[in-house]
Amino acid sequence: MGQNMPGSAHGAFLAVSLILVAATCIQFTVEFSRELWDWEDKGKSVSQLQLDLELAEERRIPEARRLTPSAVERQASYKERTPAEVERLRRESRHYRRVHLWMQWLLFFSSAGVTAITAWYDPPQPGKGVLIALGFTITVITAATGYFKPRERAFNLQQTADSIEEHVTALDLGIAPYVQAEDVNLELFATNVENMRVEQRKREQQLDQPHQGQQEVI
Score class of each variant (00 low, 15 high):
Ser70Gln: 05
Ala119Arg: 14
Gln125Cys: 12
Glu73Pro: 06
Asp172Ser: 04
Gln180Leu: 09
Ala143Leu: 15
Trp120Val: 09
Glu152Trp: 04
Trp102Met: 10
Leu53Glu: 07
Leu55Thr: 08
Trp105Glu: 15
Glu57Tyr: 06
Gly129Arg: 08
Ala84Trp: 07
Arg74Thr: 02
Leu89Thr: 01
Leu55Gln: 08
Val140Met: 07
Val168Tyr: 04
Leu134Gly: 02
Val99Gln: 06
Lys149Ile: 03
Trp120Ala: 13
Glu87Cys: 10
Ala84Arg: 13
Trp105Met: 15
Pro123Gly: 07
Met103Pro: 02
Gln159Thr: 15
Ala71Arg: 12
Pro177Leu: 10
Gln158Ala: 13
Val72Met: 11
Arg65Leu: 12
Thr145Tyr: 03
Gln159Leu: 11
Glu63Phe: 07
Leu106Val: 02
Phe109Cys: 11
Ala143Tyr: 03
Leu157Thr: 00
Glu57His: 08
Ile141Ala: 04
Thr82Ala: 13
Trp120Cys: 12
Ser70Arg: 08
Ala64Pro: 09
Pro177Cys: 04
Met103Glu: 08
Pro123Cys: 07
Lys149His: 15
Ile141Asn: 02
Arg81Thr: 11
Phe109Glu: 06
Thr160Gln: 03
Glu85Ser: 12
Gln158Phe: 04
Gly135Asn: 13
Asp183His: 05
Leu89Cys: 04
Leu53Gln: 10
Leu134Gln: 00
Leu51Gln: 14
Ser93Phe: 00
Pro83Leu: 07
Leu55Tyr: 00
Phe136Val: 13
Asn156Pro: 09
Ile138Tyr: 06
Arg74Tyr: 01
Leu106Trp: 08
Arg81Trp: 07
Gly146Leu: 09
Glu166Phe: 06
Leu101Asp: 12
Arg74Ser: 08
Gly146Tyr: 03
Pro69Leu: 01
Gly174Cys: 11
Val179Cys: 11
Ile141Trp: 03
Pro126Gln: 10
Arg59Trp: 02
Ile175Ser: 13
Arg81Pro: 04
Asp183Gln: 12
Asp122Asn: 14
Ile164Trp: 01
Asp52His: 04
Val72Phe: 08
Gln158Thr: 14
Ala56Gly: 10
Ala76Glu: 05
Phe155Met: 05
Tyr96Arg: 01
Gly174Phe: 04
Val130Tyr: 04
Glu57Trp: 04
Pro69Ala: 02
Thr68Asp: 05
Ile117Val: 12
Arg151Tyr: 01
Pro177Arg: 09
Leu106Gly: 09
Ala154Trp: 00
Asn156Leu: 06
Arg91Pro: 14
Ile132Asn: 10
Arg94Trp: 09
Val184Ala: 14
Ala116Arg: 11
Tyr78Trp: 03
Leu173Arg: 15
Val72Gln: 12
Lys79Asn: 06
Tyr178Lys: 00
Arg90Glu: 08
Thr142Ser: 15
Gln75Thr: 05
Arg90Met: 15
Arg74Pro: 00
Ser70Trp: 06
Glu58Thr: 05
Thr160Leu: 06
Ala71Gly: 10
Leu131Asn: 07
Ala133Arg: 01
Arg153Cys: 00
Glu152Thr: 14
Ala56Ile: 03
Asn156Trp: 02
Ala56Tyr: 00
